[in-house]
Each structure stands twice: as C-alpha cells, then as structure tokens.
C-alpha cells in the first residue's frame, strides 16, 4: 500500500525541528531512519498530517568519548555504531547486539536513537542500553533534560519522550568498562524480531567473585526488564551451576510475557530462563578470562 498524503518538512537544525514540533503538536511526526515508521505509514496504520524529516541532521550523527562517557548522537546509523572501533572498545556489548537488528540493508538507514524511541520490547538497542545503565538527553523548544533509561520505558512502544521532544543523545557510562558481557537472543528466523533476548554485563574480582552485574531481558514484558533479583543472588559469589540455575529462575520469576501467534506465554518464560543463564555464563567466563585467576 501507499502512504496517505502529508505535508513534508525538513528542518535544517535541531532548534528548527523543536519549533516545528511545538507548532504542529500531535499532528507532527518525526522521521529518522524510517525503518519502523515507513512500514506503518505504507500500511496506513498511522496517517500523520505533517512529517518532520530529521534524518539529514548531521549535528546528531556522532560517536565520541568524553571522560567517563561514550556519547552517541541519536541519528547515528545503526551500521555506523556496529562498525565503530570506539564502541567495540568501550561498549562491546553494543557491538555484539547490533548485528541482530533486522538486516544489513535496514541497519544502513535505521538510526540508533530511532530504535530507542520506537521501544519495541524485544529490540536489541534498548535492552543493551538498559544493561549498560545508559541515560538519554531529550530536547524540546524549552530546553534539554536528561533521563536515565531505568525510568525511560513506560509501556509497549511508549517512552518518557513527550510530544514536542526530540531524542538528542545517548550517554553510556564507561568509566569502568565491564570485564564480561554477552548479548544473545532467540528468533524464529535470522533477522526477525527476537522472541526473547537477553543482555548481561558483569565484573569479577581476583578470586573470580562477582562484584557487579546487570542482566536485562526483552520480549518478556511490555518494556525491557532489569532482573535485579538475579543480580542480588550473584553479588559476592563465584558462578556455579547451581547458582546459575537459581539466578536464571529468579530472573524469570517476575516477568509477565504475553502469548501470541509466535510463541506461547510458557515458551517465552522457558526461553527467558534459558537465555538469562546463557548470557550470565558467557559474561562470567569472559570476565574471569580477562581478570580472574581461573
């Protein structure tokens, strides 16, 4: 199908884009990489009156490190993040997660920030950034504000971004780069959205005891989930098979997946446990190989 008619607006900078959003309110729709929005427009699931095209704004395309932060502009293409040596060095979890998103051909246009704002509960970027304890900078005509990702996801396809606001930047703390990390997912077909995805970053001390861990699960709830209970069990411990089983059970204990055409609720719960265990184990082994005494 073809999209319904709209007025096309192409602002020359972020300030202009914010002004347009203010002017057009709920009728104005931002387009970044278009890889989620175009299918929606083509199927006429949405028919915005005004399309505000920010895809060309160079000022929001960058990857740089500043002190203890890795900052990525919202309009940076997914493919550029995937291939960035700086990202691989400072946030290897992201480099591992990015290739799972759709296909090379969609990553060539899809943006880093667009995925975060779209907030599909199985999406790789939101899940990894939550594990990395990232924050975002959001801009409106009134000014900028910072939001932690812990507070960013509201429900299915809905974030804390208000009408009139633009996602500017993602800030990832990289002061102490986690020693171990892992991203893994299960999808029915390579390149499809995941049924369940999991991400983990983890640190160990010289005795191979876990000193810090963040585990996140996607596809098991309306938003990406931080499995804090599992993390609590792991702190101060060495990872044994028993502990791994216990922690992965804890991780999936509080999640509430819905069954659908692709997978039943029970199957998703099963996958959540299996993939929680997989990423914790891989992250632990990597951390130990890097710093421990194993």
């Amino acid at each position: 199908m073809k999209p319904a008619a709209f007025d096309y607006l192409r602002p020359s900078n972020v300030e202009e884009a914010c002004q347009l959003l203010l002017e057009y309110g709920e009728e104005g729709k931002l387009i970044a990489g278009g890889q989620s929005l175009l299918p929606i427009l083509n199927m006429r699931l949405s028919t915005p009156e005004f399309l505000i095209d920010i895809s060309g704004l160079q000022e929001l395309k960058y990857i740089h490190s500043e002190g203890d932060w890795l900052n990525i502009g919202a309009l940076t293409r997914q493919r550029d993040v995937e291939r960035s040596a700086l990202v691989k060095e400072a946030a290897p979890l992201l480099s591992e997660a990015l290739p799972y998103i759709g296909h090379m051909q969609t990553r060539n246009r899809g943006t880093f920030g667009g995925s975060l704002v779209h907030a599909d509960p199985t999406a790789e970027i939101p899940l990894s950034l939550l594990a990395l304890n990232a924050s975002v900078v959001v801009q409106s005509a009134e000014g900028a504000r910072e939001v932690e990702l812990n507070d960013f996801f509201i429900t299915y396809l809905t974030t804390d971004i208000m009408p009139g606001e633009i996602l500017r930047e993602v800030k990832i703390p990289v002061g102490s780069i986690p020693m171990g990390y892992s991203f893994q997912e299960y999808s029915r077909k390579h390149g499809d959205f995941a049924l369940v995805a999991a991400a983990c970053v983890l640190d160990t001390d010289e005795q191979n005891r876990i000193t810090g861990v963040r585990l996140t699960l996607g596809g098991v709830d309306a938003v990406p989930v931080l499995a804090a209970d599992a993390a609590d069990l792991l702190i101060g411990e060495k990872l044994t098979d028993t502990l791994l089983q216990e922690a992965s059970r804890a991780a999936s204990a509080h999640v509430d997946p819905e069954g659908d055409l692709h997978a039943s609720r029970e199957y998703r719960l099963h996958l959540a446990q299996v993939f929680a265990a997989k990423v914790m184990e891989t992250a632990y082994n990597r951390a130990v190989a890097k710093g421990g005494t194993a």
Partner: peptide, 24 residues
C-alpha cells in the same frame, strides 16, 4: 512487500544498500 521484509526493492543510495520502499 512495501514494508521492508522481502528485499526486492534494494538499491544503492550513495553506495549503501537500502530498501527503496522504506524511503521517500
């Protein structure tokens, strides 16, 4: 398909392979 799934419409835009059905 006109929603990015089949790849039949792929062209090079400034050297990058992209779906031409997912771009105005």
């Amino acid at each position: 398909c006109e929603h990015g799934v089949c790849g039949a419409c792929t062209v090079l835009v400034d050297g990058s392979a992209v779906r031409s059905c997912l771009m105005f």
